[in-house]
């Protein structure tokens, strides 16, 4: 573990050294302005570019190795990727089912009407006072 950490630190330092090498000719003034790159500038720039790339790759590799070891030791939990569950589409109620429900609801009423029609001799007792009127007369 510690050796990988040392490697990651050194690789990160190399990355910074490479970046410095790339800008050093311009920062130190050894590269004249508005002129073609001199030999020292070309050498330092491309060497610095290579050092920076290798340092970055090394730092990433050591960091990945450290992460892998932490996962093996159980100190880091690997996130499980959530599988997106498709949302159930709202099912439109079938028109037949609504009419069937309506028929079921109206069935007792239809039955009562039919019974009324089948007994023509009986008359309804109309003319009774309403409940509201009874309450007001109290």
């Amino acid at each position: 573990m510690i050796r990988k950490f040392v490697g990651a630190v050194v690789a990160a330092l190399a990355l910074m050294a490479g970046l410095w090498l790339m800008i050093a000719p311009f920062a130190l003034g050894t590269q004249p302005e508005n002129a073609d790159w001199t030999n020292p500038t070309t050498s330092e720039f491309f060497t610095g570019l290579g050092v920076a790339i290798v340092g970055l790759a090394g730092a990433l590799a050591f960091a990945a190795a450290i992460h892998e070891e932490l996962v093996v030791r159980g100190l880091v939990a690997v996130r499980q990727k959530k599988v997106a569950e498709p949302e159930p589409e709202p099912v439109a109620p079938a028109p037949q089912s609504s009419s069937a429900e309506l028929a079921t609801l109206l069935a007792p009423l239809v039955e009562a009407l039919r019974e009324d029609l089948n007994r023509p001799g009986e008359h309804r007792q109309n003319g009774k006072p309403t409940l509201v009127g009874v309450e007001e007369n109290r």
């Binding site: 490697g7 050194v10 690789a11 060497t47 290798v54 340092g55 050591f62």
Partner: peptide, 20 residues
């Protein structure tokens, strides 16, 4: 495997230092 890549990078950096 990843550590081997890192060690290879360290070797290359050592050689780059010598070249510099």
């Amino acid at each position: 495997m990843k550590a081997k890549v890192g060690v290879s990078a360290l070797i290359l950096l050592f050689l780059a230092g010598l070249w510099l």
